[in-house]
């Protein structure tokens, strides 16, 4: 069969797709996007996590045909996706502020609550003496840069799925508590890090987001 859907903002088409192929297989083997990973292919590890019409899904459990006509975001498109979102927010924020002025209000855009890390606390985790070209010349989403800076990447096989899941959580919950982070990422297995540096990375991205944007 032929399948059409949008991947990372661009229309894609795949021919001769066998009906049993997963979205993951079509992304990896037919569209040249192997960033989404194939660690368990049974929906337990989360390394194949992509956004399907905005919702994080295990692409190994989605039949390719189910994606027909829909929008998919993979790790390869995460930086652009995050950048577009930031632009939209800046634009909407400007409009909101304009409305605020007409109504004579001066409220803050974003509320906060819970016991999330401050920027200072989060940045304690930042590596010192950074001298790699990591990130140089390449636009990264804040969560991607935070994973590098916090040492959250070892073998890296779980990383794409975790990035998509963590980015989606921060979109919904920009100021997460540690328990919120753990709950949101509980569908993503990592075998290398013991998750501590992943926690650090998400705290760091949240803190940079709240102070920087």
């Amino acid at each position: 069969m032929r399948v059409n859907f949008t991947v990372n903002g661009r229309p894609q088409e795949a021919d001769d797709v066998w009906e049993g192929e997963s979205l993951l297989y079509v992304l990896r083997e037919r569209m040249g996007l192997p960033g989404s990973k194939n660690a368990c292919e049974q929906g337990e590890c989360g390394s194949c996590t992509v956004r399907l019409d905005g919702v994080p899904v295990c692409s190994c459990l989605v039949a390719a045909g189910q994606a027909e006509g829909r929008e998919v975001v993979t790790v390869e498109g995460l930086a652009e996706f995050a950048e577009d979102r930031a632009k939209d927010r800046a634009k909407n924020g400007a409009e909101e502020r304009a409305e605020d002025r007409t109504e004579g209000c001066s409220g803050t855009v974003r509320g906060s609550g819970g016991a999330s890390a401050s920027l200072d606390a989060a940045q304690r985790w930042r590596a010192h003496g950074t001298d790699s070209q990591t990130g140089e010349g390449l636009e990264l989403a804040p969560i991607q840069q935070a994973f590098i800076d916090a040492g959250a990447v070892q073998c890296g096989f779980c990383t794409p799925g975790l990035l998509v899941a963590a980015d989606e959580m921060l979109e919904r919950n920009p100021d997460p508590t540690d328990a919120d982070i753990r709950e949101a990422l509980s569908g993503n297995l990592c075998r290398c890090t013991g998750y501590e540096k992943i926690m650090d990375a998400v705290r760091l991205a949240a803190a940079r987001q709240s102070e920087g944007v």
Binding site: P34, E76, H128, D131, D149, V153, P160
Partner: peptide
Amino acid sequence: QGSQTRGGIGESTLRPDGTLKVTGEFAYSS
């Protein structure tokens, strides 16, 4: 790898493969 700072032993220099791994471009055997 390389830039201005020293990056010798004892420093927490960052992984040279970090960017490739967070962008999905790092080529695993599969």
